[in-house]
C-alpha cells in the first residue's frame, strides 16, 4: 500500500522517466531516421515533463497575478519558463534534422540507417 501511494504521489516523475526511456529505446532500436528523430522528441518531452512537474506546488495557482482574492500560493513559474526555451531548442533541432533527412534521402535514396551504412561501407571499400 505504501508503495502504491508512493507511486501515485510521484506518478509525474515516473511518467517522465518512462517517456525518457521510451524515447531512448526508440533511438536505440530503430534504424529509420525519422523514427529516431521522433524518439529524440519523446525523450525531450520526458525531460520537459519532468522539469515542469518539479515546479508544481500542490494546491498552487497558475502564476498569474490574481487581483480578486489574495491566494498567493503560486506554482513555480521558472521551470515552465525554462522549458519554453527547451521546447524551442528541440523544435529547431527537429526541423534541422528533418531537413538533413530530406537531403540524405535525396543522396542515398533511403532513410534507413543500416542501408546507408551499407552504402558507405561499399564506398569505402571501393576507394
Amino acid at each position: 500500500m505504501e508503495v502504491l501511494k508512493q507511486i501515485i504521489e510521484n506518478i509525474n516523475y515516473i511518467g517522465a522517466l518512462a517517456l525518457f526511456v521510451i524515447g531512448l529505446y526508440t533511438v536505440v532500436t530503430h534504424s529509420n531516421l525519422i523514427k529516431r528523430i521522433i524518439g529524440i522528441n519523446i525523450m525531450g518531452t520526458g525531460v520537459f515533463y519532468f522539469f515542469v512537474s518539479i515546479g508544481n506546488v500542490v494546491g498552487g495557482n497558475p502564476p498569474i497575478v490574481d487581483l480578486d482574492n489574495g491566494n498567493l500560493i503560486y506554482i513555480n513559474p521558472l521551470p515552465s519558463g525554462l522549458i519554453l526555451t527547451g521546447i524551442v531548442v528541440v523544435v529547431s533541432i527537429t526541423v534541422y534534422s528533418l531537413s538533413l533527412v530530406v537531403r540524405i534521402y535525396e543522396t542515398y535514396g533511403t532513410i534507413d540507417q543500416d542501408e546507408i551504412a551499407k552504402i558507405i561501407d561499399q564506398e569505402t571499400f571501393d576507394d
Binding site: 529547431s92 526541423v95 528533418l98 531537413s99 537531403r103 535525396e106
Partner: peptide, 18 residues
Amino acid sequence: STMITLFHTVIEEAHHGS
C-alpha cells in the same frame, strides 16, 4: 519569421532538391 522560414526550407528542399 523563423517558423515560416523553417517550414519553407523543409518544403523547398522536398520540392526542388539540392
